[in-house]
Design a protein around this nucleic acid. Structure first.
Lengths: 233, 233
DNA sequence: TAGATTGTTAATCGATTAACAATC
DNA sequence: TAGATTGTTAATCGATTAACAATC
């Protein structure tokens, strides 16, 4: 009996957040019919160390083979199991603006086990419109839909000032998880999982990083060799 | 002379990723005309410890006051400075689908120093259409635009299979930072900052968390008190 | 076989939390 | 004043990296 796997201990956050990246890469390898992949190859592709990759793998019900690495098919299987790609997770989207509709039609969601069963809006002008195979519903139907359709996840795609109210309605309807795309922090009971998408925060990270780099621009020429800049006066 | 601030040392990643949350909260306080905020109040709102908040503040050019906390206006100022909210960062969006258009019209961007100066698409049927004040441009104009308009950041809102090609074009055009909303890992020279939005990965985190909770559901009744469940047979 | 690669232990590194003197 | 709160140091915790025997 090995020490690893047995989805019993909760995965460390950093590990869980690397798994989707592994899964993306592994699916690409599968498409190209590659059979085996080594920790070195994964590490190089994703900018990690081989140690990190092997440590992460040790959380999965999987064993690698010396000289070959991990079997691509098996890896896709266990990562997909962990990330719910092989279980249907039913979700609703609140907000039928551009963002809400983009998510409703987002092909990647379907390929990873997420099924959008309804989309809602509070604006009477929008209610009744078609979004792919769905029809925009009024908020009054939210609670019933979540219950009858066994919805797990609510995706909030409304303006920040409406997000907390929508969140409260989702919680009241018995939702288990919320993806928040609004730019605000949500308060929910601790029985409900909330993950914030924080797209603006990602932009702010970039803004910080590029200003940092500009200000640390060495005074030597761009093409300076390490030796040259090390020896600069 | 205090040990903190002087934007010289690069901020630790976890600190930088909490700053946008602080800024959001502080702007809400400002709206409500609150003058001072304590580490305890921030910690409680955002689910952190007071130690973490004070450690984070020590990276900013700011001093708190005993018994009162931090001045809301000053805090908004220094967080905004750090996150580029008071500097104009010019960006282009590649992809005029629902997602690209949603971002182009995203009000929060403008309020945080980000200005979208152009939106591009490769589809002739879409080129020429209006997106708010912008007109969708063909990809052939990308390079010129990035140079002439001094664009810092490119936002990739195209399907996964096109993302690497778009990224290469942005890099060739001299972009400094990229926000990638496509579900794929990008390879760029290390002079360019890439941040991946990974919305699907956030859904997968939720899927993992809710399945974990379901399976760890205690056998006692939902409404069981801590004492009751601790004593359960 | 020789060499590459895994799985795992131990060492290092860094982030969070606790503690507390200083201070308003 | 007494009590609340900061800023900072030290302790703890956890994640990453290094190292290496096992193995194919």
């Amino acid at each position: 009996m090995s020490t690893n796997q047995q989805d019993n201990h909760r995965l460390p956050g950093p590990v869980l957040r690397r798994f989707p990246r592994y899964l993306t890469h592994v699916r690409e390898l599968k498409k190209v019919q590659q059979q085996w992949v080594s920790s070195r190859e994964i590490a190089e592709t994703l900018g990690l160390t081989t140690s990190t990759v092997r440590q992460d793998m040790s959380h999965l019900d999987l064993t690698g083979v010396s000289k070959r690495g991990y079997e691509v098919n098996r890896l896709e299987q266990v990562l997909g199991d962990t990330l719910g790609a092989h279980t249907e997770h039913r979700n609703v989207i609140i907000g039928a603006g551009l963002l809400g509709r983009a998510l409703a039609l987002h092909a990647d969601f379907g390929e990873h086990g997420f099924k959008t069963v309804a989309i809602f809006d509070s604006d009477p002008k929008v209610i009744g419109r078609k979004v792919g195979p769905l029809t925009v519903r009024p908020m009054t139907l939210l609670k019933r839909m979540v219950r009858d359709q066994k919805v797990d996840i609510g995706v909030i795609a409304v303006p920040a000032q409406a997000a907390q109210m929508v969140s409260d309605q989702l919680v009241a309807a018995g939702i288990r998880g919320i993806l928040n795309l609004a730019h605000t922090h949500l308060h929910v009971p601790k029985t409900v999982v909330v993950v914030e998408a924080r797209i603006l925060a990602r932009m702010q990270e970039i803004a910080y990083a590029i200003r940092k780099r500009r200000s640390q621009q060495p005074l030597t020429m761009p093409a300076a060799t390490p030796a040259a800049s090390a020896g600069a006066a």
